[in-house]
Design a protein around this nucleic acid. Sequence first.
DNA 1: ATGGTGGAAAGTCCA
Length: 274
Amino acid sequence: MSAVRVRLPAVRLVTWNVNSVRARLERVVAFCERAAPDVLALQETKCTAEAFPREPLEALGYEVAAAGHSQWNGVALLSRVGLADVEEGFPGQPAWGDPPRTEARALGATCGGVRVWSLYVPNGRTLDDPHLAYKLDWLARLRDAAAAWRTADPGAAVALVGDWNIAPADDDVWDPTAFVGSTHVSPAERAAFAAVGDAGYREVTREHLPEPHTFTYWDYQRLRFARREGMRIDLAYASRALADRVTGVRVDRDERKGKGASDHAPVVLDVADA
DNA sequence: ATGGTGGAAAGTCCA
C-alpha cells in the first residue's frame, strides 16, 4: 500500500509583454508553436476581454482568461494545463484615474498546480509624477497580498510574473548614467520590488540568468535592440516551493527581431514536476 | 538634432 500522492506536472511558464495581442496575433501563435509554453502570461494586451482573440489560441489547445480595457493595459493567461479560480486584480489592488478604477494589471489563475499571476506594474512615468506614487502603492499592496498567500499556504507554488517596470540592479540597464533621475531604477522602486521578495519569494530569472546585461526589453527608438541597449524588467518571483523546481530560464531574444516585434521578449521558465 | 518608434476610444495619450 502506498499513500495517494497528487503529482504536479512539469510546466513551461512564459511571461511576455506583448504590446497589443491583436497587433501581434500571428507572432503569438507562432511563438506558441515554436516555444510550446504550457502557460503563457501576457501583459499589455490592449483590448477588452470581449475583443481578445480567443479562437486561434484555443485552437492550439489553450484555455484563455483575459482582462482589459479598450485601449491600455490588459493582462491575460493562456494555459493547456488547466485554468482554475481565475481572479481579476489582487486583494487590495489600488485604483487609478478620475474616476478611480482598478486597472487591468493583474490576473491570477491556477494552472497545473501553480498559482500564476500575470502582472503589469504601473510605469511611474517620471519621479515627480503621481503615477510613481501609484506604482509604489501598487507594489506595497501587492507585497501585502503576496505575504498573505504565503501565510495561507507556505508550501504553495506561486508565480508572480510579468512586466515589473523596474530594473532591480544597475547591471539590468545598459548604462546606469543614462538613467540618473529616471524611473525604473530609483531606490524607492527597487526597495518596493525587493519587499515583494522579502514576503517569501525568489526572483528566479536572476538565479538562472545571472549575467549582467541580460535584457528583456529594448525601446523601439534609437536602434536600442541592434545596439544591445536594453533593460531587464520582465521578472519572475517564485515561492520557495516553486523556485526549487525551476530548472532553467531563457529570454527568447529572437522574438524581439524583425518586423512587427513587441518591444519586450518572452521570458521562458521551465518548472520540473513534483 | 529635445529627435526617434509603435499601438491604441481618431486625436492625442501612453510607453
